[in-house]
Every structure is written in C-alpha cells, then in structure tokens.
Amino acid sequence: MRRIALAAVAASGLTVMLAGTALTDETNWGAYEVGDKRSGYTYAAAETRSIQDDDFENPAMLWVDTGQELWDTVEGEAGKACASCHDDAAVSMAEVGAIYPVYYEPRGKLINIEQRINLCRTENMKAKAWKWESRELLSMTAFVRNQARGRPVAVKIDGPAAPFYEKGKEFYYQRRGQLDMACKSCHEDNAGNMIRANLLSQGQSNGFPTYRLKWQKVGSLHRRFRGCNSQVRATPYKAGSDEYVNLELFLADRGRGLPVETPAVRN
C-alpha cells in the first residue's frame, strides 16, 4: 500500500518535501491570526501580501468596482437592480459575507452567496442567472462579500444547517483521488510545511473570491476546490454542487473568527 502511495505521489509531482515539524513562526500577524487559525495571508510571500494591503494596488478591487456598478444596474423583466430592494450595500450586505452559506428553506438545503445572487436575479429581477465563474458573478460576489470585510466569520451550523455541516466535515476528512489524500492531509496535517516550492496554508476560505497570481484574475472558492481535487487526482465536483457548498460551510466554521478579507491576493 505504501509503495502505491509513493508511486502515485511521484507520478504527480505533488510531493511533500519536508517531513517533520511545522515551521515555527514568531511573527505577530494581527487580525490575520485568531487563536490557532491563520489566514492564507500569513503564508503568502511579502510581495503578495503587499499587493493585498493597498486597495489601489490590489487588482481584485477592479472586480469589486464592477460589482458596485452591477449593483446599480437595472436588468430583467421586473425592471429592478440589486439596489432597488437592497439599497445601500454597505448597510444591507454588511453581514452577508460573514454568515454565508446559510440554510435555505424553500430548497431544503444550503445556499452560498453566488447562489443567493442568482436566486435574486431569476426570482426577483426576472433576469437570467449568471454563469459560475463569469466576470459578473465573480464581481458581484466579491462586491457583496467585501461589504463584510473585517467582520469575523460567524456561520450558523446548528438547527437545519447541522446535517449539511456534518456532510461538509465528512468531505473534508474523506481521502480521495489517485493520491488518496483528504483536504486535511495538506491543510491540517501539513499546514506550514513545504509542498514542493509552496508553503502549505491552513486552507482558510475567508479571503474568497480571491485574486490568484496563478490564475491572473479573481476566482471563486469552488474553483479552488476543483483545483485541489484535481491536484490529488480526484474528479472534481461541479462548482455550485451541494458537495462543495456543504464543504464551504464546514470551512467557514473551521475559520470561525477570522475576519472576512475579500478580495484577498494569493499565489
């Protein structure tokens, strides 16, 4: 069994090079560290952090700007814009970014911010849903979540959300793919260790949608999930799938108390 694992790891190039203890890090990370929870910010290179530090250097703010414009844009047969019902996003969306995903009674399951936006579009605005990972949906999601920037993540995992939280947790610890790795294999057991030339983070979700240098644009949390799943050579689920929304809730709770950072900048 062990040989198979080694062969699979070797084939992929996804080798964890450093064994042993996590790097000790004495830096005071301020708001980016809450108890033993550390934002991906604290694992990023200084240059990458400095791009996030200034809103006029952070290219993701171009998406937030677009989201602001779309917020005020009337679309659909109902002749409404987001602002028609929700007025000033700074007030009406102040919390949303910190408390989603939430249980949605009419569907009997969780929905995340992207899905809430599209529900508003199809049901209230009578407009077409935006495609996942489209510039529009990314921009609006980044804009909405940005309104909660600085607020501690505080999702609800009890009541009707409880069974979905449990499913998300199960997903997180479930080994998958040819590499037979779970989310936790990297982000819990090896956070702070190098995976080839990259420093593994805790895999916190508080900065999404995030500008990734690799993508050279803003991308969604579910795009990141798909990337992780592909890298362990598992078949990724669809963006917006129940599996990923449940995982999103589990991850949010795992990073409970970390401030919303959207839009973050990461490698």
Binding site: G13, V16, R175, D180
Partner: peptide
C-alpha cells in the same frame, strides 16, 4: 495516511522534483 508521504525520502523527493519541475501545472 499522512505518514505515507512524509516517509518519502529526500532523495526520492528530489528526483520527483527534477522530473516534475518542468511539467509544472
């Protein structure tokens, strides 16, 4: 499960990096 890849020896790991470095995703 974590032990399995932690046990990759440094030499093996370097070989892999050598081969994989060019094919970086």
């Amino acid at each position: 499960e974590s032990k399995q890849y932690r046990d990759v020896s440094r030499r093996q790991a370097l070989i892999v990096v050598g081969a994989g470095g060019l094919a970086a995703a």
